[in-house]
Design a protein around this nucleic acid. Structure first.
Lengths: 180, 180
DNA sequence: GAATGATTTAATAAATTATTTATATAGTGT
DNA sequence: ACACTATATAAATAATTTATTAAATCATTC
C-alpha cells in the first residue's frame, strides 16, 4: 500500500504573546487583516507552507508534506521571530492535528454499489454534489474519500500508522463485500 | 419553409501551439486577458465574426452566416498567423459545432395552448421569465424557441438539413394537434 | 418615449474556481 | 452553541468565463 502524505497540519504555542500588527510590518510577506481573520497569515514559499500566528502566541502550520517538515518550518519561524527580538521558545511543543494522505487502489471502484452495499449509515455519496464517496472509519477515527478511479484521500489522522490501519480496514471491508 | 442561418459556430485545430501573448501584440484588434479568459479574442469586422484562439492551437469561430463563411474566416486567420511566422496549417479541418437559424410560420401561435397540449415534459414555457417557448426535438437533437408571433429560432444543429427536419417535425406536431 | 440591457437556447475552446473531508487557531455574528 | 472568517491538501466533478445569434418581453436609463 503506497501512501503519500499530502498535507500535515500542526499547532503549537510560541510561549509569548504576539504583537501581530508589528510582526506583519517586519515579516516580509505576512498578511494581517484582523477584521477579516484574527490570525496573521504568513505564507512560506519553500517549502510551500503557511503559518497562522495568533495574539495569544498560539500558531498553526499547514501545507507540510511530513511531520519532520512541520517541525522544521515552525522552528524556523520561531527563529525569525526571535530575530525580531520577540522572546518566543526556540523549539515549542508541536502537536500534529491532522494528516492528509492519498493512495491508489489501482482498480476502479463502483461507488454506487459501495453506497448501496454499505448503506447510507456507513457512507455518504451524493455524486451530483461531490464525486467522492465519504467513508468514515470509527477506529482509528479518520475519514476517507473514495473515488471511482480507485484513488483515495484519507484525512483526520493524527499519526501516520493510523492512515495505514484505516486504509487496511477499508480494503478489507470492500474486499469481503466483493466490491473490489 | 424559408430558413435563415443567423450564426455558425465551428472549432478547429491550427496544428501548432500558439503564443497568445505574442499574437495579441502583433494581431491588430486581438484581446488577451488570460486572468479573465484563457483564450485570445479576435473580433473581425468583415464579415462580423469572432475567433477564439487557445494556447493548445485549438480555435473557435463564431458569428458566421454560413458554413462557407466559417471556413473562409478560419483560413484567412490561418494566413495571418502564417504571416507572423507561426507554422499553422493553411487549411485545418473545420468542424461545425452549432448552427443557429430562424424561420417564420407566418401565423400567430398560442404558446399557452401549445404548452398545455404538449405538456411540460415536452416543452418549457415561462413567459414571465422569457417570452419564448422552449421546444426540444429528440432526433435530430436540436432546440427550437417558439414565439407568439410565429417566429422560430432553431439551435443545436450541426448540419443544415437537420434544421429543416426539426422544423418540419414541429410544424407537423402543431398541425396535428390543431395548434396552427 | 426611445434606447439599451438582461432574459433563453446551443456549441466549442481552456483556465479557474467551487464542491467535500479533517484540523488547530480566534474573532464576529446569530 | 453554532456558523463563518482563513490556511493547506488530495481526489473528480460541475460551473463559470468569452464569443456569437435570432426571437420578444421585461426592467432600467436619458
Amino acid at each position: 500500500m503506497d501512501i503519500k502524505v499530502e498535507n500535515v497540519v500542526a499547532s503549537a504555542s510560541s510561549g509569548a504573546e504576539l504583537d501581530l500588527k508589528r510582526i506583519s510590518m517586519e515579516l516580509e510577506g505576512a498578511e494581517y487583516v484582523p477584521e477579516k481573520f484574527p490570525g496573521l497569515i504568513y505564507k512560506i514559499k519553500d517549502p510551500k507552507t503557511a503559518m497562522l500566528l495568533f495574539t495569544s502566541g498560539k500558531l498553526v502550520c499547514t501545507g507540510a508534506k511530513s511531520v519532520e517538515m512541520v517541525n522544521e518550518v515552525i522552528f524556523r519561524v520561531m527563529g525569525q521571530l526571535r530575530e525580531l527580538g520577540i522572546d518566543v521558545l526556540e523549539k515549542p511543543d508541536v502537536k500534529i492535528q491532522n494528516i492528509v494522505a492519498t493512495t491508489d487502489l489501482k482498480t476502479e471502484l463502483n461507488l454506487n454499489s459501495i453506497a448501496i452495499t454499505l448503506g447510507l449509515e456507513r457512507v455518504e455519496y451524493e455524486p451530483e454534489q461531490f464525486p467522492g464517496l465519504v467513508y468514515r472509519v470509527a477506529e482509528p477515527k479518520v475519514v476517507a474519500l473514495l473515488f471511482g478511479s480507485g484513488k483515495i484521500v484519507c484525512t483526520g489522522a493524527k499519526v501516520i500508522p493510523d492512515i495505514d490501519l484505516a486504509l487496511q480496514q477499508i480494503k478489507k471491508e470492500l474486499s469481503e463485500a466483493g466490491l473490489l
